[in-house]
């Protein structure tokens, strides 16, 4: 298959994210919840325009791709995510970059995801 010319490829933004959660989460679960939150907030049509993809997610840190013109919609969709796998969770956008490499080097390398002290969560 012929690859699309670089000038014809759609432009993207890559969001370095951190998941602040009560429990550990896998990439699949996070992807499902992000799509659910986004579709509920923006609707299927807008989400298809946003081109949201979870490119990688490990140990609470990950990279999410979106269309470069739809950055604020994507941020809003990530912000309204309130739970993953029935455990409360919050997505925190650490930074935005035009390349995966940039996002990883600038925002993710050497970082440990923020965790809320689990003992204090008990009522």
């Amino acid at each position: 298959m012929k690859r699309l010319l670089p000038s014809l490829r759609p432009r993207k933004r890559y969001l370095a994210i951190e998941l602040i959660s009560e429990d550990t989460t896998t990439r699949g679960e996070l992807t499902r919840e992000i799509y659910f939150a986004a579709c509920s907030l923006l609707g299927d049509v807008s989400v298809s325009e946003c081109d949201i993809k979870v490119l990688g997610f490990e140990n609470g840190l990950g990279i999410i791709q979106c269309a470069h013109t739809k950055l604020s919609e994507t941020r809003a969709a990530l912000a309204v995510l309130t739970q993953v796998n029935r455990k409360r969770a919050t997505v925190h956008v650490l930074g935005v970059s035009g390349t995966v490499k940039g996002a990883t080097e600038k925002f993710l390398e050497g970082r440990v995801a923020f965790s809320i002290n689990p003992l204090s969560l008990k009522p």
Binding site: I20, L41, S72, E73, R75, A76, L78, A79, V80, T82, R88, A89, T90, V91, H92, V93, I116
Partner: peptide, 23 residues
């Protein structure tokens, strides 16, 4: 009401843009 209701400032702004606020 809890830590899980806090959102970063940019995310708050992104939500506000949904109901018509400029950035």
């Amino acid at each position: 009401m809890s830590c899980f209701d806090l959102r970063a400032p940019r995310e708050m702004a992104a939500i506000a843009e949904l109901f018509g606020m400029e950035e």
